[in-house]
């Protein structure tokens, strides 16, 4: 193991990690928004939109991100929609993540017992108050473990964006192996970079789960 080599190339991985985090962050924010919209449509039982959400969730959950990205990046330009690789990666992650977030959030909302809503009504809460002060806190509390699992899942999935020529951690690793043949050092840097990105998320997730566990207590 050549530590001098690793120190020399570490800055490349810092930039690559920045790319991974950048893509994942915007992908995540969009998938949460998309998830919330889909759950709202499902809960409110909007006629046509409800079927669209169902079809979207099934399509997105049962196809791999790599194929979704290839379709967006190589296929869509033939229809006149040419997005940059960054946009494709973020849209692809949001398309994939949106359905996972929908399932996670819906699980949370469905787990709020009816008694809670009835009690709120008896106590004279308006529907808006009930939603904000009774439903949402409990639903989020139940949904947090699944949402955290999805966050980690999506950051991991973002490794696939290297296939559409974005210089993320996987891309830089492959580049470095090709240039220098220092496989061990490159792979070690790869593992360390992902650990540095994912371990804090995992730890913060566990803390959040403990902190907001009030729905089950």
């Amino acid at each position: 193991m050549d530590f001098g080599f690793m120190m020399h190339y570490a800055p490349y991985f810092v930039n690559a990690a920045y790319m991974t985090v950048f893509i994942s962050f915007f992908g995540l924010v969009l998938s949460l928004v998309l998830g919330l919209i889909c759950v709202a449509v499902q809960m409110a039982n909007v006629p046509v939109a409800r079927q669209i959400v169902r079809a979207y969730v099934e399509l997105s959950r049962n196809t791999p991100l790599l194929v979704q990205l290839y379709f967006l990046y190589f296929g869509l330009p033939k229809l006149g929609v040419s997005w940059s690789a960054e946009t494709c990666a973020i849209v692809g992650l949001a398309f994939l993540g949106g359905s996972y977030m929908t399932e996670a959030l819906r699980g949370g909302f469905e787990a709020v017992p009816r008694v809670q809503l009835e009690s709120a009504r008896v106590l004279g809460f308006s529907p808006v108050q009930t939603f904000l002060h009774v439903t949402v806190p409990q639903a989020l509390s139940t949904a947090i473990p699944a949402v955290v699992a999805n966050v980690i899942f999506l950051v991991k999935e973002s490794s696939v964006v290297s296939a559409i020529a974005l210089a993320d951690v996987m891309y830089v690793t492959k580049d470095l192996m090709g240039q220098t043949y220092d496989t061990y050092e490159s792979l070690t840097l790869l593992v360390i970079t992902y650990l540095v990105i994912l371990l804090p998320i995992s730890i913060v997730g566990t803390v959040l789960e403990r902190r907001f566990d009030y729905a089950r207590r």
Binding site: K156, S158, S159, S162, V169, T173
Partner: peptide
């Protein structure tokens, strides 16, 4: 669990 599958494939 914490490593992306693509990273495992590379390793």
């Amino acid at each position: 669990r914490i490593m992306p599958q693509l990273a495992l494939l590379f390793i």
